[in-house]
Write a protein that binds this DNA or RNA. Sequence first.
DNA 1: GGCACAATGAACCATACGGTTAATTAGGTG
DNA 2: CACCTAATTAACCGTATGGTTCATTGTGCC
Lengths: 222, 222
Amino acid sequence: MTADAKTKTTRQRGSWKQDPEAVKADILRVAREEFAAHGLSGARAQEIASRTKTSKRMIFYYFKDKENLYREVLEQAYRDVRTGEKALELENLDPVAALRKLVAYTFDHHRANEDFIRLVMIENIHRGSHVAESDTIRAGNSPVVEQLKEIVERGQQQGIFRDDIDPLQLHWKISAFCFFNVSNEATFSVIFGNEMTTQTGQDSLKADVVDTIVKSVLTTST
Amino acid sequence: MTADAKTKTTRQRGSWKQDPEAVKADILRVAREEFAAHGLSGARAQEIASRTKTSKRMIFYYFKDKENLYREVLEQAYRDVRTGEKALELENLDPVAALRKLVAYTFDHHRANEDFIRLVMIENIHRGSHVAESDTIRAGNSPVVEQLKEIVERGQQQGIFRDDIDPLQLHWKISAFCFFNVSNEATFSVIFGNEMTTQTGQDSLKADVVDTIVKSVLTTST
DNA sequence: GGCACAATGAACCATACGGTTAATTAGGTG
DNA sequence: CACCTAATTAACCGTATGGTTCATTGTGCC
């Protein structure tokens, strides 16, 4: 009443605590989900803001513009995934067991990080222009290839792996299987049915993928 | 002349021929390129119109709205690709040779149809909602799986292929390799270098992919 | 030729959307 | 506590964009 009446043009504003880091983290988390769900052009700044504890203004205050926010989301996503890739302890396993474990792990890991997969899909739609601009992404060359190289060398020393294996190409093949499994699930199941999407389908597929990769590196028993 | 004199407030409009089918085809062609390049939300109606011989008006006249245009683009793309998939004449080849030919062909075919790959990527970003709505896409179950099934059965009869092969799962593995090769080229080469993008890299990869698939179906010589 | 209807062009519209301006508050420092 | 700056709120803005209105022209048909 009286208090209300006194609100000339400017009204009473609520009080608030400052917590910049939490606000930034909040924005990044929601932005990641929104970009993963709708892509760069499909995501809406207003929608990101709404799902945040803060306002649209703060998004541009901290992240300059939409594209820059997207880039930071990408960088964080790559950072997170790479962090989670470590410590498989493959050194104590024989080469075949190590490879099996690595492939199975990658299969599950991709499944469990669908948002990351989707961000990479989106980035490929944009022809990788944003990852190309990010030094931090280009620099942190995923350690998986190094692990593979080590496994391959041990297998070759033991004479059970072929001599013409390119670790990068091997990594490519593993990635192709594990990535495609998540990235193309939607269209594949619409066209060919849900057979491979079910739990048993995925189990069968994982076993097949692991076997296929292992067979591709073993020396052909003459 | 008399016709010229009649131009009150409305000015002389250029004359034109009617050719609805050509106009529609023109729009579809450009729209396909634009959607493949920028995605559903990223593509601009005005930009599609500009690259067309017709106007933005006609896009909505013939295709109702953007989403419907996108759906028709998708349908046409699937139709085209399936048409191009036929006639490999694998019946006369022994199972291994037939499989090798099919895989190598798929590898090249995906490479040569990048726009289609990109449309499928985009559709997966949208969780396949548009292909799901299209009867014509769901219906025309790609004949490749049938071809594979036939090859597999022949191989099994000859005792050179394993007995536990699921043709659909085999198709999945071939697709994974050939699709990923195109879909993830951008990010993969940014992060791991261009080694696999060069002509020699692609040749080596294709050979590896073919071998890997073939080895996965052969009976393990005990 | 003239009628009905499909096809087309030009201009227009409502609004969604990325981004900004301006005022206000919190919190640290001397 | 006074003062400065970073953080935050509320309101606003210009324009890009999907879509439409309306008048006009082509075309087959009787």
